[in-house]
């Protein structure tokens, strides 16, 4: 990290400024192509989404200016608002489970980190990160069906009474979809936390042991605080995954039963491409983008210092 810090002395500052002006404009040629793609395929569509959200438009005919009426409906129409609520509920499964369980597993693994088993496990538990979410959705809808492995297993355990079509039951569909997300994200979180743990100074633990601290005290007073940054990262990644979920739900429930698993991403897709209410879809899209930023920004800020 040792880097000459510009602007120490007045003379240095002048030299630096001169250098910057010559380099500066040439440097823009390096930035422009990237910026062009970004502007055309990201910023322009964002601006258009904002614009569309103020109109009523079926995507084909002429449009009508409706001001903020679409936003009004996003927050008053239970069907639309509930999709936002569902996305927030999904955070429990997509974030809380992988992070908490990941911490527990990583802490346990740390003690046998060098064993062969742990090395194999690193590869295996990473698999869900690599495969398309669509495939995860297909595999799990089959596992969670009324004749699927999950029910087979429960029956074996003598829990035949609780078996059901998990994705088709109002009470369990959202948690079931959440579990699919947890399955995908648990491996990533575990490995991230494990990597973070390997950076913790072993001397800290030795000192704690000498003080007679048990495994739990050790975990709470050393492991968790040292992993602040990694935990923050896990939370950011998983919260965004929850709010912007689409693939898994599109494949496994299409938002049903009823609207029990409808999320904003899927709702936008239906509104825009099947119901042709471009304005409504765009208003919901704006709300979703703002919601993601509102959730991600504080955590980003939080980790900023660690990122030099």
């Amino acid at each position: 990290m040792a880097r000459p810090i510009p602007g120490r002395s007045p003379r240095g500052r002048a030299a630096e400024a001169a250098a910057r002006s010559t380099r500066g404009w040439a440097g823009w040629l390096f930035v422009l192509p990237a910026l062009a793609f970004y502007v055309v395929f990201v910023l322009r569509p964002i601006a258009l989404t904002a614009q569309y959200s103020l109109y009523e438009w079926d995507g084909i005919g002429p449009s009508t200016w409706v001001g903020l009426a679409n936003y009004g409906r996003v927050f008053t129409d239970p069907e639309l608002f509930d999709s936002l609520v569902n996305a927030v509920k999904l955070i429990v499964f997509f974030s809380a489970i992988p992070v908490v369980l990941g911490l527990a597993i990583a802490a346990t693994i740390r003690r046998i980190a060098a064993s062969r088993l742990a090395l194999v496990a690193r590869t295996v538990i990473f698999l869900p990160q690599v495969i398309p979410l669509v495939a995860a959705g297909i595999a799990w809808s089959w596992l969670l069906s009324s004749t699927g492995v999950v029910n087979q297993f429960l029956t074996l355990l003598g829990l035949g009474r609780v078996t059901r079509a998990w994705l088709g039951d109002f009470a369990t569909a959202l948690p079931a979809v959440g579990m699919i997300g947890a399955w995908v994200l648990l491996g990533l979180c575990t490995l991230l936390l494990l990597a973070g743990m390997s950076k913790i100074d072993v001397a800290l633990y030795e000192a704690a042991r000498l003080d007679g601290a048990g495994a739990w005290r050790e975990f709470v007073s050393i492991t968790v605080p040292s992993l602040r940054q990694e935990i923050a990262v896990c939370v950011t990644v998983t919260v965004i995954a929850a709010l912007a979920s689409f693939d898994i739900i599109y494949i496994s429930t299409q938002g049903g039963p009823g609207n029990a698993t409808m999320v904003p991403g899927l709702q936008i897709y239906y509104l825009a491409f099947s119901e042709r209410q471009i304005g409504m879809a765009s208003a919901l899209a704006m709300v979703l983008m703002l919601l993601v930023i509102a959730c991600a920004l504080p955590i980003q800020w939080f980790t900023k210092d660690g990122n030099r």
């Binding site: 258009l48 569309y52 965004i240 912007a244 689409f246 936008i268 765009s282 983008m289």
Partner: peptide, 10 residues
Amino acid sequence: TLPFEGIITP
């Protein structure tokens, strides 16, 4: 952090 669904329509 942009969710792709946000801009898919335009």
